[in-house]
Amino acid sequence: MTQLLLVNNLTKVYGNHKVADSISFELEQGTITALIGPNGAGKTTTLSMLAGLVTPSDGSILFQNQPKADIRASIGFLPQYPKFFPWLTALEFTEMAARLSGIEAKKALEDAKKTLEFVGLGNAMKKRTGTFSGGMKQRLGLAQAIVHKPKLLLLDEPVSALDPVGRRQVMNLLKELQQETTILYSTHILNDAEEMTDQLLFLRKGALVENGSLDSVREKYANPRILIEFESDEEVDRFITMSPWAFSREKRLLVIDAEKEKVRISDALTLLTTENFLIRKLELQTASLEEIFMKVVMEE
């Protein structure tokens, strides 16, 4: 795979507040990367720097190995709440966006039409954007971000403001786009990221605190636990007298830290069957993404 973007020590300081603190990562061509963090972690600032809106205080952005290039022609950017000139129609706006990105007039109009059809605004093309609903604005925002076929698509919270239906529709569009371009998007909802991600970047207070594939992050923070639910309190008490492992108890439910106690689920099963315990449930549980999120970006 070829590298598209190399970000090195990217820093933004406002006054004496570091909004982005020495962020370094790289994006491979054709991948989709989620920038994850709670509100105020520096996601928007990071994306704004990549989009060329905000000048970094320090650090470098290398696009296709070319330093200092005006990369705005190769980028599509969708802000969290895209704002349009209300007196322009969707088609006029998208066409203008394409032409400003260097596409000649005739092709710009064609591309704008095609893109609006693609995002599902085919019927609303000739309507002024001032009359658009939130979901329509989000689609139009996506249309203007992809109309010039950018090499890198930057999306700031592309689905968080949408209702479940709109969210699903936009997610599907993004999955289609993934075939053609490299995507970096921010979100504070891990379930969104779970659905389409090659790489996860976790931001906390402006700093990149974890970086890796979904699987590797999952594995690292899996924190496997064995859950045993017994039929009765007597059974729990009987088990406690025999258990070689430390546990925590909640009524008829016992939780054993599998990693710490070096126990596999088969070990537990063997003990339970040989001693004829009456159980309702035996389960190996790993950390949910929400738990990982809390652990990685919220701790301290």
Partner: peptide
């Protein structure tokens, strides 16, 4: 202020 400029400024104009 309204943010309409944002989508212009990210273009190579």
């Amino acid at each position: 202020k309204s943010g309409t400029a944002t989508l212009l400024y990210v273009r190579p104009m």
